[in-house]
Nucleic acid binder design. Structure first.
Lengths: 122, 122
DNA sequence: CGGCATCCCCTCAGATACTG
DNA sequence: CAGTATCTGAGGGGATGCCG
């Protein structure tokens, strides 16, 4: 039985937890940002663009994003197969807020790095 | 040797990766949100407010946030000891963008849940 | 009260190999 | 090309116990 106390209680109903459980992972945001820069992208393009992600993680990340309706997946039954991914409108609406975070990150990264080094030296 | 390709390359210099590595965890955002609601909070208050977090994770999360200069930690040498946590100005500036995400989450959670169920039923 | 240290489980992510 | 399948190791994170 899960502990059910506090303002963030209830995994089922709490939007914060719900969102964090999905995008609080290593890759989702990077995939969304990569797709945000262009109209559409094929699997291997994403794979190369992001870099350092494994095929396995890219696949599973895309599946989650697709399930949430943030990314659309279109299969072209050709040989060799072609699959195109693109942001849905919902995905684009989320990206707005992610860009807010990215902007903050860029502005504050240097100061944060200094804080970290100072903290480590204590 | 790490693969160094793609637009997000270079963990050291990429703000996106840097930020994600820190706040892309299970608890940081929840702690920031909890502290965002009040002036200051003691350890046990945070512990009870968040609920379902363990002492260990709360401690380590707070240490990271402190190292990054997002949260300040003040020790009062009393008996019994008292430690107060509060957001720094930098922490407050980040919270603005987190609230943006939270707002998006609240607006879209229902639609996302439906998408997930539809996806699972395929 | 507010931790840190230890133990331990068990998930998750990487590597590799294979397939339609 | 765009994935699956399988194995395996590292480490995230919980439970417990001790300390200033």
């Amino acid at each position: 039985m899960e502990k059910e106390l506090g303002i963030f209680s209830g995994y089922e109903t709490c939007p914060v937890r719900n969102v964090l459980d999905r995008f609080g992972d290593k890759w989702s945001v990077l995939v969304l940002l990569a797709l945000g820069g262009v109209e559409k992208m094929r699997f291997n393009e994403l794979y190369k663009t992001i870099g350092s992600i494994s095929q396995k993680m890219l696949t599973s990340t895309l599946r989650v994003l697709e399930a949430d309706g943030l990314v659309s997946r279109t299969i072209y039954p050709e040989i060799p197969p072609r699959v195109e991914y693109k942001l849905t409108e919902r995905g684009k609406s989320l990206l707005v807020y992610i860009h807010g975070l990215v902007g903050w990150a860029k502005e504050n990264m240097e100061a944060i790095k200094e804080s970290r080094e100072q903290f480590d030296r204590r």
